[in-house]
Amino acid sequence: MKLFHLTFLTLLIPLTIKAQTSPTRGMQYDPENALYWKISNDSENLYIQLYKNEYAHKINQPGGVWFFFNPKGQRDTVAVPALQYPIYKQPMNLDVMAVYHFKDITNGELPKYNAYGILTEGKLEEKEGTSFWNKNHLVYSSSLTIPLQYIQTGGSKLAIQILLKGRRIVPLPPGAVSPILISTPTEKEVDDMLYATDIWTHCWIDYEIR
Rank of each mutant, 00 (worst) to 15 (best):
M1I: 05
L3E: 13
L6G: 04
T7Y: 12
L9F: 12
L12A: 08
T16R: 02
Q20D: 10
S22N: 14
S22A: 11
Q28N: 14
P31F: 11
S43M: 07
Q49Y: 07
Q49I: 04
L50D: 12
Y55K: 08
A56P: 05
H57G: 02
I59S: 13
Q61G: 05
V65R: 05
W66V: 00
F68G: 00
F68R: 01
G73C: 04
V80L: 01
A82P: 08
K89F: 15
Q90P: 15
N93C: 13
M97S: 02
Y100W: 07
H101W: 00
K103C: 00
I105N: 02
N107L: 04
P111C: 02
Y113M: 05
G117H: 02
G117Y: 01
I118A: 01
L119M: 08
E125T: 14
E126C: 06
S131A: 14
W133Y: 14
K135D: 15
N136V: 06
L144V: 01
T153H: 04
G155R: 04
S156Y: 10
I162P: 06
R168H: 06
P173T: 03
S178R: 02
I180F: 10
P185D: 12
P185K: 10
K188C: 07
E189C: 12
V190D: 14
V190T: 14
Y207F: 14
R210A: 12
